[in-house]
Computed example of a mutant assay.
Amino acid sequence: MTSSSPQPKRVKSEKTAAFRVLAFLLLPTMTALAKFTLHDAHHVPAEGAFVMSPNHYSNIDPVVIGVGMWKIGRMPRYMAKASLFKVPVVGWLLKKSGQVPVERVPRGRQSGDPMKAARQIADQGLAVVIYPEGSLTREPDMWPMRGKYGAVRTALEAGIPLIPTASWGAQEILPRYSKRISVFPRKTIHIRFGEPIDLSEYEGKHVDSRVLAEATEKLMTAITSLLEELRQESAPAVRYNPAEHGQSETGRFESK
């Protein structure tokens, strides 16, 4: 495993008051729980919009990626459950930090376009974090499963970099589907940022399902490769597809 790379110089601070409050609330706890080691942070653009696409294997992943981005000076915007925006203080912080509310509605009904909101954030030159798996991976050993199109669609339509990212170690703090946090001993979390996905072959083309599927597979391959480096293991040769195992891709599937 390579050592962590020098952090790139940031042109303008994105650490607004709302993000500083979030950092004040979260950083001491996360620092107590884990040591964070960042790899190849120079791949993250120093300014301008981009989509960051990490693997997803623990409910604490968004906080982990948020800490990593804080350390390199880029502030993340996520798509969060709309119900959280109604919680006192929490809702105010989410709104002030530019997070995107997403309504959960019955299958078959429309609740607006969260990808449109993500593109609007990208238009402002900000960073959007989109988990391509859409939910915690169902893969038994927590390797990335089949990806969905949201991250690629946003990057292609906005014409901005797509940064594959892998983290490992969060499962030791909060195991998949668990609600119990492990405090001792202090853990180590590694985050590796990959080179932007080359989407040049799709420029000028109609963004249809074929294009999205091909580009998403490129993204998932890159994320998996980064995770292989962190874990020092080889991922399964075939990408895990929950549908082939009679599993839903949303909600809790198993206790582990």
Rank of each mutant, 00 (worst) to 15 (best):
W92F: 08
K12E: 12
S255W: 07
K9N: 13
L33S: 10
E139W: 04
S97W: 09
G91P: 11
G125W: 08
W92Q: 08
E47I: 00
L227Y: 09
Y78N: 04
I60M: 05
R153C: 04
G134R: 01
T224V: 08
P54R: 02
S3I: 08
T188Y: 04
Q7D: 13
K86N: 14
S225N: 08
F24V: 07
Y240H: 08
L93A: 06
P144F: 11
A49N: 04
K187F: 07
K35V: 09
R10S: 12
R186G: 06
V183R: 09
S135C: 00
R10N: 06
K179L: 09
S58D: 05
W168S: 07
I160D: 03
E139N: 10
A17D: 07
R74W: 09
S5D: 11
S5G: 14
T154P: 00
N59K: 06
H245D: 14
L230R: 04
R107E: 12
V11D: 14
L84C: 06
E233S: 10
K179M: 11
Q247Y: 06
L27A: 11
E254M: 07
V129C: 00
R180T: 14
G169H: 05
P8F: 13
A151K: 01
P88I: 12
A18V: 03
V152Y: 05
Y240R: 01
R146T: 15
G68E: 09
S135K: 00
I197Y: 00
W143V: 09
V129G: 00
N55F: 10
S248Q: 12
H39G: 02
E157R: 15
I163W: 00
S58L: 04
S135H: 12
L226W: 11
V63C: 07
R20H: 02
E172V: 03
L199W: 05
G91I: 14
F85K: 02
K179R: 13
K86F: 05
S200M: 01
P242I: 09
G108I: 00
K96I: 04
K95I: 02
P45V: 02
E157N: 10
T165H: 03
R107F: 03
R138H: 03
M30S: 06
R210A: 10
R10K: 11
R10T: 14
P88T: 06
A222R: 07
V183D: 05
P45W: 03
L136C: 02
G150V: 12
L219Q: 01
A122N: 09
T37N: 10
V90Y: 04
K12T: 13
P144Q: 13
A32N: 06
A122L: 15
Y57S: 14
Q124V: 05
A237H: 13
H39A: 04
S182N: 13
Q7H: 13
F85P: 01
G48E: 04
E233K: 15
K148Y: 15
H190Q: 15
K148R: 14
V105C: 00
T250W: 07
Y202M: 06
P132T: 03
P144A: 11
T37R: 15
D123W: 02
K187N: 12
P28V: 10
H206A: 13
I191L: 15
F184N: 05
L27D: 14
R10D: 01
R107Q: 12
R20T: 05
Y149L: 06
S3V: 12
K9Y: 09
H190C: 07
Q247C: 01
S4M: 12
A82F: 02
P114A: 08
K218G: 03
V63H: 03
M69K: 00
R119P: 01
